[in-house]
Design a binder for these strands. Structure first.
Lengths: 375, 375
DNA sequence: TATCACATTGAATCAAGTC
DNA sequence: GGACTTGATTCAATGTGAT
C-alpha cells in the first residue's frame, strides 16, 4: 500500500514533472478537491455511488413499532434540489477531466437523484452506453403500503463521448450469463451476512454495495491492471473487488470511520490467482488469419468447392484465395455478400466445405490452423 | 363518442362558464396546443409516452444480414438535446396545470430521454412517487455485441407536489401480485401477436405499448370514472384499456394515420366485467440461475477445481464463470460437451466440486443459491 | 390435427482498421 | 478525412408451411 507510481499522461512534455497517481490508496477528504489534484486523462474507469439526496421526512417505523435505520447522515443533506444539482455537476466535471479518452464512468442512484445525475452526464458531453437496473432480490418492503416496493436501483454507464472507444468484455459477460447476452437488468441480493461490515453490532455504512455488483461492473468494463477511481469510497467495496480482480484502485472519502473500515477490509482481501483471472477472450484477440493462408498452407486445395450451409450456392477456391461463382468473384466475405444480396457477410461462417459427407464451416479450418501454428 | 360533458372544476365561480372536457375523444394536432385549451385542474391522471429522441446513426443489420426496422419517424427527430429539453418542459408545464391537485402523471422512456424527463419533472415541482422498470421478456438483442442488451424501459410516477394526496390502489396491486407487495420492476413481453396493430402487413406504429402495462398503471393509480389524458396517444392503448376498465379518456396525436387506427381499435374494445379484472397478470419470471452468478456471489471462488463424477476430467473456474481444462475453455455446458466429445451436456449435473472429501454436483450450489435469494 | 422446421421481428444512440 | 476492406455479431415470441 502507499506506493506511488508514475504513469504516462498524454500531452505533457518531458520538462514538466510527471504527475503520479496515488495507486491503491484511500485519500481522506473532499472528493472534488482530491480529484482536482489528479492529472488529466489518467483514470481508466470511475465508479461513483454519490449521496442520494434522499430528503426523507421524519423517522420511519415498521408496523411492529421498530425503528428503520434510514439514511439520515449529514452528508446526505442538501439545501435544495439546485444545490444537489450544482454539487453533481462539479464532481462530474472533474470526473470527465481525469478520465482517459477511452475510459468509462459508472454512477449508481435511485429516483431521488439519478435523473439529475443522468441529465448532468448528458449535458457534460458523456455518451450513455447503457442504463442498468440492479433488481434487489430482497428489498425492504414499503411498510405503509403507500407506493410500490422500491425494489431496484439504477446505474448509468457512459463513455467520454459519442465517438469514444471503450472497453466492453462482451465474451466474459456472455460466459458469465450461461452463453446468453448479458441484459440491462441484473439481479443481486442486497449486501448482508458476513459481507456486511459491522461495528458494535451496527452497520458501518448505510448503503454498502454488494461485492457481486462491483465484480460484474469491473469484469465488464475494465482490463487487468486498469486504474479505477471511486470518489465516494465508503467501506471500499470497489477497492476490495478491484484488488481481487487484479485491478489498481484509488478511493476518496471524507469520513475517517469509513476510511479505517475500508482499509482493513482491503488489506484482508486476497487477489485471485492468475489462472482464475483468465477470462474468455473475443476471437479478435487471436491473431488474424487470412483465407489465403489456408490455401497456401495446404489446408484447402485450390479448386475445392465451397457451398453455403444449405448448398444453395457453390463457389470454387482460386489459387490466390479468391472464390469464383459463375461471373461473380471476390473474397470469401465479398462473394458471400454478393450472392445473398446482403450489405455484408462473414465468409468464415457462411462458407462450408465437405468433410466426410458433412458440411463444416471454413472457420473450423481456421481454428485448426491457429492451433497448429500458435505456441 | 363525441359527447361533451361538464365537470366540476375547483376555483371557478358559478358566473363563469364551466369548461367542458372532450371526454372519450381523440384530438388531432399538437399536444401542447390542445393541452392549453383544457381547463386548470381537470384531469385525474396523465399517461405520456413522448418521443425518445433516439438519435440513431446509420442502418443496422442483423448477423444474418436482414435489416432492422428502426424508428425513423419525423416525430422522433429533435435538433439537439437542448431542443428536446425545451419541448419536454413545455408539455410537462401544461400537464401540471391541468392535473387535479390529487392527480398523478406517468411518463415512460429509455436512457435516451428519461433523465431529461425526470429532471424536468422534479424542477417543475412534481413529486416522484416511484420509478418503475418494465423488464422486457423478449427484448431485441444487441446484434453487434458492443453493449449490454437493452432489455428494459423506465417509467416515472409522480404526484403534483410533496404534500399532495394521490390514488394508489394498494390492495389491487397486492392481489394482482399473489398477495405480495407489487414491486417497482414489472415484467411484460413487448407488444406483438394479435395485439399488435398492423396495416398491409406492416406495424402501424413503431412503438405500440402492451395493454398489460397500461392495465397495471390504470388499475394502480386511478378510480372508476377518472379522466385519463394521453398527450402522445399513438395507436390508443391508453384509450382501449381505459374503456375496458371503466375510466374516461382523452387522447391527443398529430398523425392522422394513428388517430384512425386508434379510433377503430377503441370502438372495438369491450368494457370488462368486474370479475375479469385479474386475468391479465404477467406470468411469474422463472428463476433462472447462470453459473456465473454463483461465482459473482461467492458460492464458488474463481480458481476452484471442478471434476466430472469419476474425476476423469479436471477444470478450473475462471473469474467470468468460464471453465478451463488445458487448451479447451468455455461455459460449463460447452466444455463438458467438448471433453466428452458429445453434442451437448448439462454442466449442472456433470461437473462436481469437492465438499469435505465428497464430490457434489454444482447443481447443489444452484439450489442453495435459489433458496437463499428467492422469497 | 399435431408437430417440427424455418422465417420473421422488436424504441438500437450497435465496428475497426487500412489506404 | 473519406473510401474501402475485413470480419464479428442475436433472443424470445410469433407466424407459416411442410410433414
Amino acid at each position: 500500500m502507499g506506493v506511488l507510481e508514475k504513469v504516462n499522461v498524454r500531452g505533457r512534455t518531458a520538462a514538466q514533472p510527471v504527475p503520479v497517481l496515488p495507486l491503491d490508496q484511500i485519500l481522506r477528504g473532499d472528493c472534488i478537491a482530491h480529484m482536482k489534484a489528479l492529472p488529466d486523462k489518467s483514470i481508466d474507469c470511475i465508479f461513483a455511488d454519490p449521496p442520494y439526496n434522499l430528503q426523507l421526512g421524519g423517522d420511519l417505523n415498521r408496523p411492529d413499532g421498530s425503528h428503520v435505520d434510514a439514511v439520515t447522515d449529514a452528508w446526505d443533506k442538501f439545501d435544495s434540489l439546485a444545490a444537489y444539482d450544482k454539487f453533481t455537476r462539479e464532481w462530474l466535471t472533474e470526473a470527465r477531466r481525469i478520465l482517459k479518452d477511452d475510459g468509462t464512468i459508472w454512477v449508481i442512484g435511485s429516483y431521488h437523484n439519478i435523473f439529475k445525475v443522468g441529465s448532468a452526464i448528458q449535458d457534460l458531453g458523456f455518451w450513455i452506453l447503457n442504463d442498468i437496473i440492479w433488481r434487489k432480490a430482497n428489498p425492504m418492503p414499503n411498510f405503509k403500503g403507500t407506493r410500490f416496493t422500491n425494489a431496484h436501483e439504477t446505474l448509468i454507464w457512459a463513455s467520454t463521448g459519442e465517438k469514444a472507444r471503450y472497453t466492453f468484455n462482451y465474451r466474459s459477460m456472455k460466459t458469465l450469463n450461461d452463453e446468453l447476452q448479458m441484459r440491462s437488468d441484473w439481479e443481486f441480493p442486497i449486501c448482508g451476512g458476513q459481507e456486511r461490515l459491522k461495528k458494535d453490532g451496527h452497520k458501518v455504512h448505510p448503503t454498502q454495495k454488494p461485492e457481486a455488483l462491483l465484480y460484474r461492473i469491473l469484469l465488464a468494463s475494465t482490463k487487468k491492471g486498469d486504474v479505477i477511481l471511486d470518489p465516494f469510497f465508503g467501506t471500499g467495496t470497489t477497492g476490495a473487488v478491484a484488488k481481487r480482480l487484479g485491478r489498481r484502485w484509488i478511493g476518496i472519502d471524507r469520513e475517517g470511520v469509513y476510511v479505517e473500515a475500508a482499509q482493513a477490509r482491503i488489506d484482508a482481501a486476497l487477489p485471485l490467482d492468475e489462472s482464475a483471472l483468465t477470462t474468455m477472450q473475443a476471437p479478435k484477440a487471436a491473431p488474424r488469419v487470412a483465407f489465403g493462408q489456408l490455401v497456401e498452407n495446404g489446408y484447402l486445395a485450390p479448386g475445392t468447392v465451397l457451398t453455403d450451409a444449405r448448398r444453395r450456392h457453390r463457389a470454387v477456391v482460386g489459387a490466390d484465395g479468391s472464390l469464383k461463382c459463375g461471373d461473380a468473384a471476390g473474397s470469401i466475405h465479398k462473394l458471400g455478400a454478393t450472392l445473398q444480396n446482403a450489405p455484408s457477410c462473414n465468409g468464415w461462417t457462411w462458407w462450408h466445405y465437405e468433410d466426410g459427407g458433412a458440411l463444416k464451416p471454413i472457420d473450423a479450418l481456421r481454428q485448426t490452423y491457429l492451433l497448429a501454428t500458435q505456441p
